[in-house]
Amino acid sequence: MTTEQIVITLGLKVYTAGDMTNQEVTGGYVSDLLSDVMGHAREGEVWITLQSHANVVAIASLKELAAILLVKGVEPDKAVVDKAEEEGITLLGTVEDTFTITGRLFQLLSKE
């Protein structure tokens, strides 16, 4: 399933598209500690977090994550959006909380 299909199915907000049309999503990772994400997230995963510091973009790029998904309506600063644009990172948002959106994404990916 591509990031774009997930965006449409779950009704996610797109701050920056990156390569969401072609990117295959392999799974998800949920953590708000960036050191943990650097250590343990894997390529192709959607990272669900409420952290919106610019460092999230660099980490998503480093780990080659499929997308960053900001929960609870957290709005990224313009600088963060610009950085994601520059790095070609898919930056998404939802008003739902981490538990709910993770459950929905898990269900969706489990059907594959």
């Binding site: 960036l34 050191s35 994400v37 650097m38 660099a58």
Partner: peptide, 10 residues
């Protein structure tokens, strides 16, 4: 380091 992963350059 735990919270942000690395020292923000700016």
């Amino acid at each position: 380091y735990t919270q942000l992963g690395f020292f923000p350059g700016d």
